[in-house]
Design a protein around this nucleic acid. Structure first.
Lengths: 122, 122
DNA sequence: GTCGATATATCTGAATACGATATATCTATG
DNA sequence: CATAGATATATCGTATTCAGATATATCGAC
């Protein structure tokens, strides 16, 4: 496993978690991540869209375009948003990721615990 | 921060933690990691030695060769081993990494907590 | 009508991971 | 003695991944 669980795409875990609460479009996901992490984390467009595309291909999320026509008089079409929602398969994957993360964190605590002489925690 | 703290070199954190307990040589570190993680994790030579070299250059660890002569009486000795020990700077770095990891884990729980509807909790 | 925010998407240079490879010593077995 | 496997350190090469830069287009504010 080569320590992979410590980093097995934290971005994927976060995005799946966000989508587990409600369907979102890409830009909103990135804003949501920044907000919920108090600005500590950010997902750039260069990571988000390839990831969403990958998730869609592997059937973990389903996607559909929402054509927003704000007003019938509006000559233009409207801003296009692509909405993503978790599939049943995606929910399974999310639970797997959560379990793997918690297990990896527990193992890591064995290492950290023995070394954390200044932190105070036992 | 781009979600980096979730994975900011878990290998480095683990290696520093191992060295925080007592000086070790490379091969022993890799065996120790496998043992303490119940075989869940492994650090290949291709990752370990470049990492140790990097840590040494940045003064987080100090290293010295243990030249054991091929003494017939000295069973188990005679092979060249390079011993690594944490420097004061390395201990500081380790504490920083531990804090960053715990903080990142706490933030991640905000995301996971809202999504973990099927897990043991709920 | 220009600027910044919204919105999706790809490209690219840099860093990293991990297995494979190389060298050499020690131990166990035939 | 020969051979193989474990110990021990170290580099290489390919593949993946990152994160910023770039591209396109709409919308609201001034």
């Amino acid at each position: 496993m080569a320590l992979s669980d410590l980093k097995t795409d934290g971005t994927e875990l976060v995005v799946l978690s966000v989508l587990a609460q409600e369907p979102q479009y890409g830009y909103a996901i990135s804003k949501h991540v920044a907000a919920l992490s108090d600005g500590a984390w950010s997902i750039g467009a260069g990571q988000l869209y390839p990831l969403l595309s990958k998730l869609e291909k592997s059937k973990l999320v389903s996607a559909s375009w929402d054509e927003v026509k704000a007003d019938p008089d509006d000559s233009g079409g409207g801003r296009r948003r692509k909405w993503y929602r978790l599939t049943a398969k995606g929910k399974q994957r999310l639970q797997q990721r959560i379990e793997a993360h918690r297990k990896a964190t527990a193992v890591l605590e064995r290492f950290i615990g023995g070394a954390d002489v200044a932190g105070g925690a036992a």
